[in-house]
Every structure is written in C-alpha cells, then in structure tokens.
Nucleic acid binder design. Structure first.
Length: 454
RNA sequence: UCCCCAAUAGCUCAAUCGGCAGAGCGGGUGACUGUUAAUCACUAGGUUGGCGGUUCAAGUCCGUCUUGGGGAGCCA
C-alpha cells in the first residue's frame, strides 16, 4: 500500500498521474454527475477533495460509504476547477478498507462539544481540532528537543518507579505487587515501598553533576485530588538542570527556551494555529507572537507584593509580605498588570521547597516562577542549594531524616557546584500554544481523579 | 477536598405558574445541484442521568447518589 501523504499531495507543484492516497472520509457530497469525497489522513489539517464519477466502476466500489469510512484511492491529481482547493484527485480505482455505519458513528459533520468528544477520546483524533492539537503537541516536543540539543543538553531518563516517598512535590501513587491486605512491605517486589515519581529533579541534579546540562522529558504522576482544568494525575514534565548556573542565567535561559519553542511552533504549525485562532481562542496567534517577540516581565516577590497592594484590587486573599501568591494574584500580575509572561523571583524561604538556594538576605530563596496569561504557572524553578551544611539544615528543619537524602547530600560533599533548573508542565505549554483551556483536551487519553477510561 | 451550576432524541439545546415531550443538526427515503458547514421535501427517533419522596398530576418541587462544567485549594 505505497501511498502519498495528503500533506505532500497538496504541496505538489504540478499535476501527478496515478497517485495513491489513503485516509478517512470526512464528508461526502453527491451530485448528479459527480461525487465529492473529502479525505483526511492525519498528515495535515487540510482534506484532499476526491472526485468520483457516478457512472464509473469506482462508484460501485464506493457504495454507500460516507463520513468515517476508511479507504484507499488511486487517481490523478489535477488542478481543481472548483473554489476552495488548488488540487483534487480524480479517482480511477478505489477500495473501502473499513465501513463506518452512519447510524452509529458518533462523529458528525458538525461541531461537537469538548465534553462529548472527551467521552469518545478514541475517536476525537479524527476531528480537525483534536488532530491539530496532537500534531502541535508532537511539533512542540520536537521543538523542545531541538532547543536543548542546540544548547548542549543531554536528554536523561530518570526513574518512574521510586523508593523515595518525599520528592517534595505532592501526593504519590503507590505501586505494589502485594496481594490486597498484605501489609508486610519486606515481601513487596522491591522489599520496601514503591511509588510513581512526582519529579525527576533530584536524579536530574545528579546527572547534571557529570553531564553538565541535562533535561528530563517524561511522565510524571501526582495522586492529588485536584479537579481543575489545569491538573492531571499523569502528565509530562520537562526538567532541565544546569551545572555552573546561577539564578540570573537560569532566568535568561528559561525565557530563551519558551520563546524559541513558541517561535518554532509558529513557523511549523501555521495551519493548526490558524484553526485555533479562528475557533478556539481568538487572538491566539498575536499573543504567541508577543511571547516570541517581547521580553518577559521580571520582578521580585517583594515587588510583586507591592504591585498587588497598590493595584486597588479587592482580592479575596489579602496581600501581605510572606503569603504565597494565590491564583487571583498571579492572574492579576500576568494578565492585567504586565499583560505578558511574568517571572517572579526571590520568594520567602518558608513558602518554597527545601532544595532552593538561600539568598544572602537570610529570608528569601533563589526561586523563579514563570506566570503566563491564561495558563498560570507554566514554569517553577530555582537555583539549588549547593552548600552541604545549609541543605542538611533545611532537610532537618523540615523534620526529615538526613539519611533519606544521603545520595542527594553526597552531590554537595563531592565537587559541588552552583546549579539551577526548572520544571515545565508540557501540557500547560500545549494549552498555551493551542488556546485549549482544559488539560484533558491536550492529552490523548487523560487521567484525572475518578477517570481512567481508555 | 470545598463552593456554585448543569444533566431532556445520536449531538446541541427549548419546554411560561407543577398540567398533551419540542426544534435545529445528524440518520433514513426522495428531489436537485462542480459540490465544499451544499440546498429542498418527507420520515423515524424519548424509562427527561439513577434511586427515593411530595402531589390528583413531576422534565419542572424536595432528599440522595452518579457524571460533567466553572471557581478555590494543591501544583506543573
């Protein structure tokens, strides 16, 4: 079944004889002297119009099949006399591969709600919107890898199964081979408790201490009962870790990273972005161009508090130095005050994770969050505490056993270096790129509390 | 986990004060047409999310459960 991708057929510079195309019928229009089939094979957003002569044997092969059926068509690619497309395929032979009963095939030639399509996640990739989302997802992943590769990074694979129950990033899923009711963890597969990872950061730090620049790009699991359009139980996180890097360099790097990837998707997915701009999020392309073209706003936590206090806004959560920024505060900063991606740095130590590097003021840590309009927190990162004594003290202050962090502390005992890194939720990045407002709609088969379909 | 809202035909939604279950789209049949969200006519299609209650009478009111959406928390 040697076939031409519709993407390539549509890009043709000249007519082509005897082209074979395979795909799914999106719509069928019958006329007296001609039948039009719009065929999509997923290679691009645009359908290929296929013309069938009702008096030909091809017509008999087509039968009554319409929307949803899969087929192979061989024919001549010729300039289309009709409006709306440059090329069309005049079918000479046709073979239906799989029927789709129109009475029961759920996808119609009309717009469906996201909620309904989510209930048929195995079929929604056959729609314009969702095929576009997943094409953009793949292109964005490629852009991420390309950026890191250009900048001397190595992709590392950190464990998905972990014996640590304190990676410091939320509730974990337990993994066990024990029978229900069996409590003796020494009889479990690993001889002790096992969880799904909530972050590859600690291991990435270790790898950065030899490879210099590394990044993770893989699955992450959070057992938090979060029911919001921005959280999933299983998602993909990107965590670069840079040796010999302090916070200001990390900020420059993070900004360069986001802007480069946005820019690359703008140039590789114009059709898809145009569809999102038209149907999903008006103004999307302009806002992405702004992200790619303008510097991000940068403020310290202290400045953020000051801006919020002077805003005249009546926030539900009162603003004072020392509080953690709430969603309403983050939205005000990035959506109303700066109206663009905003980096907030140097948070009070006691609202941030133990591994963040203490600043000289004795009060704040070298942390950095990137707040993006519509998305919220896209990136959270920091310079890591590389000083053994200070890190151990923080672990003890949390009430943790230092022995649980032996290997992590070792990184500070042997050739410790200043280093920094951040985590970016890949799906949140896709939401930003596509304008899709629910994380469940940028993951092919999303896992959320109470939902494990497909 | 908390607060608010919703659930009616395959899909999207109407149904006035508690009083005969409706439309558009999609499907089927036919007509028409180099069409492109095609158009026109006809037609089929319902345990009004589940369970319980109030009432002469419940899609409508009450309780509860389930599912979904929005907001919050947690975070990426």
């Amino acid at each position: 079944m040697l076939r031409t991708l519709i993407r390539d057929a549509l890009a043709s510079e000249a007519p082509v004889a005897d082209l074979t195309v395979c795909g799914w019928i999106r719509t069928r229009r019958d006329a007296k002297d001609v039948i039009f089939l719009e065929i999509n094979d997923g290679s691009c957003l645009t359908n290929l119009q296929c013309v069938v002569d009702p008096d030909s044997p091809v017509r008999e092969k087509l039968g009554g099949d319409g929307t949803g059926a899969s087929l192979c068509v061989k024919g001549d690619l010729v300039a289309s006399p009709g409006k709306g497309q440059r090329w069309e395929l005049h079918a000479k032979t046709l073979r239906i591969l799989g029927h789709a009963d129109p009475e029961t095939y759920p996808l119609q030639k009309k717009r469906h709600s996201d909620e309904f399509l989510r209930s048929i996640a195995h079929l929604r990739v056959r729609t314009n919107k969702y095929s576009s989302v997943f094409r953009v997802r793949a292109r964005a992943a490629a852009a991420v890898h390309a950026f890191f590769r250009r900048n001397g990074f190595f992709w590392v694979h950190t464990p998905i199964l972990t014996g640590s129950d304190c990676e410091g990033a939320g509730e974990m899923f337990r993994v066990t081979t024990l029978s229900p009711g069996e409590k003796d963890l020494s009889k479990d597969f690993f001889g002790h408790q096992c969880n799904l990872t909530v972050s590859g950061q600690l291991e990435a730090e270790a790898l950065a201490m030899g490879l210099g620049r590394v990044y993770t790009f893989g699955p992450t699991f959070r057992a938090e009962n979060s029911n919001t359009p921005r959280h999933a139980a299983e998602f993909v996180m990107i965590e670069p870790e840079l040796a010999f890097c302090e916070l200001p360099d990390l900020m420059d790097f993070a900004e360069d990273f986001v802007r480069s990837c946005v820019d690359e998707v703008l140039s590789t997915c114009p059709e898809e972005l145009a569809l999102f701009d038209r149907w999903v999020e008006p103004g999307l392309i302009d806002s992405l161009k702004t992200v790619a073209g303008e510097n991000f706003a940068r403020i310290t936590y202290r400045e953020a508090i000051s801006i919020l206090q002077k805003s005249g806004k009546n926030f539900e959560y009162p603003v004072s130095y020392g509080i953690d920024l709430q969603t309403e505060h983050e939205r005000y900063l990035s959506e109303e005050h700066f109206k663009k991606p905003t980096m907030v740095t140097d948070y009070p130590r006691n609202i941030k994770a133990f591994y963040m590097r203490a600043n000289d003021d004795g009060d704040t840590v070298a942390a950095m969050d990137l707040l993006v309009p519509r998305i919220g927190e896209l990136i959270g990162g920091s310079q890591r505490e590389e000083r053994y004594d200070l890190l151990r003290d923080r672990i003890l202050a949390m009430g943790q056993e230092a022995s649980s962090y032996d290997w992590y502390l070792d990184l500070r005992r042997f050739g410790s270096v200043p280093h920094s890194g951040f985590g970016m939720g890949f799906e949140r990045f896709i939401m930003m790129l596509t304008g899709v407002s629910n994380i469940r709609d940028v993951i092919p088969f999303p896992r959320t509390p109470g939902s494990l379909e497909f």
